[in-house]
């Protein structure tokens, strides 16, 4: 009978070496809140599991001199919520991460794991996409950096190649007069998976006109979508009702959802517009409150 090998390297290089040389299926364990469930349900039977939580830089949040953040892929969501500078700069990113699971899950679950699990409904991803975040990937051929939205390839699949691991999530310094927000819809109040998610980041000038926007939608396509038409509906407007109506229509039009046990196509299409609108209002009002 095949045994599963478990390794907990203490450097990134050692992790990459293990993954590169693995025979059979290899999995990276950050918080394990998805991986362990899949193991127990016998959805996966990997030959190798590499725990990255012993690698110090994977558990660190550092702020660069320009105000941007470098977040280790295994940083637990709880730690994101306790970092006041991060929370002030990117409240929407943090609120998305803090919606994953329960208090107990928050102590383990990470944005890196949430992203690499590649669920279209991942709660932390639309916020990162709206924020313009990138990921630093380290592999046998060195380092590369790609936008967050390019990491998932489809449900449960990523664009990582053999031996590669997501090391960091990079968030830029927010522009002046900017704010973000994330909202999701679930039938319950917590402990559930998004039926639709919407992340919005906006910049508003001194006279109240939106000068930049990024809008992303979760759980309405094979991966999280960055919707330029939604951004276009907001830019150049005071984010008033007319602009929000256009935004909602653009969001609904951009969806390509499926019917499944968590929601119907029709419902997801409709509610994507509702949530994009509501998240935009929150982001707009956050700028105003600054």
């Amino acid at each position: 009978m095949q045994e599963m090998r478990f390794e907990a390297p203490e450097t990134l290089d050692a992790a990459v070496a293990l993954l590169t040389n693995a025979e059979g299926e290899a999995r990276v364990l950050a918080g394990g809140t998805d991986l362990l469930v899949q193991l127990r349900a016998e959805i996966i039977e990997p030959a190798l599991v590499v725990d990255i939580k012993r690698i110090p830089e994977m558990l660190a949040i550092t702020q660069a001199s320009d105000g941007g953040f470098k977040i280790g892929a295994a940083v637990p969501c709880q730690a994101l919520g306790e970092n006041m500078a991060l929370k002030a700069a990117w409240p929407g990113v943090v609120e998305g991460a803090e919606l994953i699971g329960s208090t107990q899950i928050q102590g383990r679950a990470s944005m890196g794991g949430n992203l690499c699990n590649a669920s279209p409904a991942a709660d932390s991803v639309p916020g990162m996409v709206a924020a313009g975040a990138t990921v630093t990937i380290i592999g046998p051929d060195g380092e590369r950096e790609i936008p967050v939205q390019d990491l998932p390839a489809g449900p449960g699949m990523t664009t990582l190649t053999k031996g590669e691991v997501v090391a960091f999530i990079n968030l830029p310094s927010p522009a002046p007069n900017s704010a973000d927000a994330y909202l999701r819809f679930i039938p319950r109040t917590e402990m559930d998976i998004a039926v639709v998610g919407a992340g919005v980041a906006v910049t508003i000038d001194d006279v109240g006109v939106c000068t930049a926007a990024r809008v992303s939608l979760g759980a309405v396509g094979e991966r999280v979508l960055l919707v330029d038409e939604c951004a276009a509906a907001l830019i150049g407007t005071p984010i008033d009702d007319a602009a929000l109506d256009n935004l909602a229509a653009a969001a609904s039009a951009a969806t390509r959802p499926i019917d499944d046990k968590r929601g119907t196509k029709e419902y997801r299409t409709r509610v994507a517009g509702v949530l994009a609108r509501r998240a935009s209002i929150i982001a707009r009002d956050r700028v105003g409150a600054k």
């Binding site: 039938p187 319950r188 109040t189 917590e190 402990m191 559930d192 998976i193 046990k261 968590r262």
Partner: peptide, 11 residues
Amino acid sequence: FLDYRIPVASD
């Protein structure tokens, strides 16, 4: 329990 939705405490 993820998709068979009994109420959670906060509901």
